Amino acid sequence: MTIHHSPSSRAVAIAAALAATGVLTLAPGAGAASADSDRDGIPDRWERTHGMNPFRAGDARADFDRDGLKNLGEFRQGGKLHDEDTDNDGHDDGDEVHDGRRSTDIDDRDTDDDGTLDGDEDADPDGEDNEDEDDATEPCLADDDDHDADHVDDEDENEHGGRVRDADSDDDDVADGDEDSDHDGEADEDEDDAAEDACEDEADEDEADVLGSIVSFDGTTLVVMTVDGFTLSGEVTESTEIEFEDADEDGAEDGDEGDDVEATTADLQPGVTVAELDFDDETGALEEVEIYMAQA
């Protein structure tokens, strides 16, 4: 007769300790939960759960959500592999990890508990919110999410009083991106644009933009009624640039896409549609007026 002895708890503890140091090899299956077949630092189970290949080490160096944090970093930091902003605070995961500041955390939207989202903080401080620090250099492939396709990034919706998944947050039949919530003559979608738009193969967010229409122009003061019912006025000076927006491309010269064709003060007639106004921050005078060519 064979007698089987159950191992004591002390024996189990010793075996576990030896296994951890590599002295003892556990039986097949014992370490399945932490197996790492491609030795990339990420357990197989986690890779399968998050759409990675447990037999391809290279995908640990990939960045599935293009947030500046490699997949291995997402695993180590507790981030979401397919969400560039795990805690939805407006500050991308890569920025939160690499900014070297304790005031931001990848999985805490208000790290210092002061009631302001980490993305809206200015950790430097340099006068620019954390979430906007990389906007000027961010290529379109890494642009921030815009779940409702209103051309206002999710991270900026709260600044303009919009909602992340509602393209017309105030139900006035004007898309949030086309609103001018701070009444400065610039559509909300354009507030944080880079100096040069590097977007390719994507719909132009400025196509057919409408700020409002001209109410009056007396030769000096231009008055415009915006699409959301506000009145804007500014002084037109000799240095004010007046341009036609999206002129007829068929008639454009070679190398000229037809945009920004020069107009004159004579074109500032009541009823003419205005695409955008650009005010001088110091004087308040109009630096630029973009209008649509009146239809004959």
Rank of each mutant, 00 (worst) to 15 (best):
S213K: 10
T265P: 06
H151P: 04
C140R: 11
D67L: 00
D145C: 01
S233E: 09
D126R: 01
A195W: 06
A32W: 02
Q295Y: 05
D44V: 01
H160F: 15
A27H: 09
A19P: 06
A20N: 13
L24D: 07
L24A: 10
D154A: 01
V164G: 04
E131R: 15
R102E: 09
G41W: 03
S216L: 01
I14K: 13
D206S: 15
R101K: 14
A11C: 14
C140G: 13
Q77W: 05
D126P: 01
Y292C: 01
D171S: 14
T237P: 02
V215R: 13
S181K: 12
G41C: 08
G162M: 08
E159G: 13
D172L: 09
R66I: 07
G229V: 03
E276V: 12
D190S: 13
D108S: 03
E207C: 10
S239F: 08
P54G: 09
D129R: 10
V274A: 07
D107P: 02
L81T: 09
H82L: 10
D145H: 06
V23D: 15
N71W: 02
G161C: 05
D118I: 00
Q269D: 07
R102K: 13
V210P: 02
T111I: 07
R101P: 03
R45M: 10
D197N: 14
T2F: 13
A208D: 15
H160Q: 08
E186V: 15
E245C: 10
D218H: 08
D132V: 01
L81C: 04
G100Y: 01
D267C: 06
P54D: 03
A19E: 11
A149L: 08
E276G: 13
S37K: 05
D144F: 04
D85M: 02
S216N: 07
E243V: 14
S37Y: 00
G161H: 03
T220Y: 06
D87T: 00
A266C: 06
D59Y: 03
G78P: 07
R45Y: 07
E121V: 01
T283I: 02
D259Q: 13
E200Q: 12
A19R: 15
D92P: 14
A175H: 08
W46H: 04
T104C: 06
D85N: 08
M225R: 14
R39E: 11
A57L: 04
V164A: 07
D144M: 05
V23R: 14
V23F: 10
D144P: 00
E138L: 14
S233K: 13
G51H: 07
E191N: 15
D120F: 06
V224E: 07
E205F: 03
D40M: 07
L26D: 05
G177P: 02
F64M: 07
S9F: 09
T2M: 12
D124Y: 00
D176S: 12
A33I: 08
I42S: 05
D110A: 04
